[in-house]
Design a protein around this nucleic acid. Structure first.
Lengths: 185, 185
DNA sequence: TTTGGCATGTAATCCGTTACATGATTAG
DNA sequence: CTAATCATGTAACGGATTACATGCCAAA
């Protein structure tokens, strides 16, 4: 069976967290692109059709508003939608199939040029550093933001910290190994 | 621009490493599913058409053989194919778009049930443990396998070790946090 | 006035998986 | 004898991205 789209559940999840406050598709997209950008992403071409489907199936309700000439549709999650969300949250995590281009290129390293590999790993290190700083900041921000979802925010941030640290450490190890290879020639 | 398929490059990479020893599509698939299974995967529906395309474009050559009634096609990389491989290896790493369902479900944790989340994280921990053991074994095996690509094998195994360690540690932290949440109620 | 943000959508296209199809050999 | 492995493919389907399309408002 093909993996079904998880776009509806991201929408339900975010509308669930926002509670009674309705959100527009545009706002949902922005939350995805900022708050959970390191965890998930969606394209417009997925998002807007999914919103329509969710409304048609009764998982969310739509309300058209006009704010200063700008028309927008605000969505709210329904009890039915919450039920669907909970069912999904309880269901086993579908694993992503591995596709790590950096490690793949490294695995083929003997067929390429060392300087190129070094560049790739340096870039990787830069990303890991940036990610680490970002996640650490989220952790700090979370500390002075008490709410029912605070512990979950903390946990997701912590995951990012651990992963970034691992990437960073490995990048250093790899660069050290490359230096050794260079001087060994 | 849509991300172009990297299937051809995986094939070129593996045929590159195997050097003058030709490989069948079936063998290539098996290497993918065993040696680099934690880094990459391909489906038959991608692999076989890609082999035909690569042959048509001159990156690999095909030779039909019959071994005890079984017909198979053995492929060898051409100098042209090596050039394409090197070009790809030198080009910037295309980042995968984030899609971490576990962390996403955790982020929505306040909308679900704690026992479900605990199950998900325990499953995650099991996978991390298995992955760690596997990668450590590859590291040890690599030590008594001297060849020109040994250092790269070691490095990819090391990446797996670091990532698995991070996942494991985080899983433990998360489970501790869950326990605290449970007793706090 | 033009750039950028707000706001929503559709169509073409492509990547990739699954299911289907076939058939021979070898080990249990 | 039958299950597993070897061996190669195709077709249908579906998920996802990109490009395109439109239009208003606010700020520089």
């Amino acid at each position: 069976m093909a993996r079904s789209s998880r776009t509806p559940f991201v929408i339900l999840g975010l509308l669930g967290l926002s509670g009674r406050t309705p959100r527009s598709g545009y706002e949902i997209k922005k939350v995805i692109d900022t708050v959970i950008s390191s965890v998930w992403h969606e394209s417009d071409g997925q998002l807007y059709p999914a919103l329509k489907e969710l409304e048609a199936s009764g998982a969310i309700t739509a309300r058209e508003v006009n704010k200063k000439g700008r028309r927008k549709t605000l969505y709210t999650i329904t009890p039915q939608g919450r039920k669907r969300l909970r069912t999904w949250l309880a269901s086993p995590v579908e694993l992503g199939r591995p596709r790590d281009e950096l490690i793949l290129k490294l695995f083929f390293g003997s067929e390429g040029e060392l300087p190129d590999l070094i560049r790739h790993v340096e870039e990787h290190r830069r990303r890991a550093e940036a990610g680490l700083a970002q996640c650490r900041q989220w952790e700090r921000e979370g500390e002075r933001n008490p709410s029912r979802y605070r512990p979950f925010l903390q946990l997701t941030a912590r995951a990012g910290v651990r992963l970034s640290e691992a990437n960073l450490r490995w990048a250093e190890e790899a660069l050290t190994a490359f230096s050794a290879m260079n001087s060994a020639r």
